[in-house]
Structures are given as C-alpha cells and as structure tokens.
C-alpha cells in the first residue's frame, strides 16, 4: 500500500522527458558582427555556443558549456583562449582543455559563411 501511494508521488516529482528538437544548424551572426580577436555567445538550440573570430579573420565555433560544471564560457582576447570564470578553466581555440579543472574538450562546430551569414552546424 505504501508503495502504491509513493510511486505516483515519485513519478510526479521526476519531470517528464520532453523531446528536444535536435538543432543541427543555426545562424550565429553576420559577417562584420565580430572584429578579429573577438568572441560572442550565440544560441544553439537550447544551449549556448561560442563564436570566435581569430586574428587572421577566420571563425571558430564551439559549445559554450564548460565540461567541468556547466558554466558558460567566454573568449579572452588578451590570452587568445576560451575561459570559464566559474572555476578558472581554459581551452584553446580548437576547444581543447589546456588548464584548470575542465576534464574534457568543448564540442567543436563547423562554420560556413554564406551570403554574409555565419552558419554554425554540428561537425
């Protein structure tokens, strides 16, 4: 009887799975939005992504969710690295975790520029 009363409660407090449309590609901005050695956060479905314009004018796009404890990272122009302010973790521009507590690299996305739009898609 106890189980029959507790089961619905346990199921109720555990939120239902809501299927998320898997985002494959988004427009992260327009050419000219970013100067060289600058970065910005964009929305990749329900998650943040980071777009960086490198010094040579190329673009890099990565997941902006730190692999340590899920904070949102940012680009540090002075260090030319991606930085997580929460626990001082660093990644290089290919997303590789280079120092601090992050245990894994950031997911790297593919970047295409077409008709002035910067299109980011899963690699």
């Amino acid at each position: 009887m106890c189980v029959s009363m507790l089961y619905p409660v346990a199921r109720y407090i555990s939120p239902p799975e809501v299927p998320e449309a898997s985002t494959q590609s988004v427009v992260a901005g327009r050419e000219g939005d970013l100067k060289p050695n600058q970065g910005k956060i964009f929305r990749f479905g329900e998650q943040p992504g980071i777009l960086v314009r490198t010094e040579d004018g190329g673009y890099r796009a990565l997941s902006a969710t730190c692999t340590h404890l899920n904070c949102t990272v940012q680009f540090r122009g002075d260090l030319k690295q991606i930085w997580c302010a929460c626990h001082n973790g660093f990644y290089d521009l290919s997303g590789k975790n280079v120092s601090g507590p992050p245990p894994r690299p950031l997911e790297e996305y593919k970047v295409n520029v077409a008709d002035g739009e910067i299109v980011v898609s899963r690699a």
């Binding site: 956060i41 949102t72 302010a85 975790n97």
Partner: peptide, 29 residues
Amino acid sequence: DPFAPAPAGIRPEWYFCWMFQTLKLLPGH
C-alpha cells in the same frame, strides 16, 4: 540571462566558498 557567459569574479555565498575553491584547485584528472 542563460545565454550570457559566466561573469568574471563569480563566486558562491561565503559558506560554500571552501567547497568552490576545492573544486577549482583540482585538476581535470
């Protein structure tokens, strides 16, 4: 703003700081 980066100097309330710093000091592996 869920789509803004974590601000520099972010830290929890003082009574969680010892745990926060412990997690910060530990390397990735």
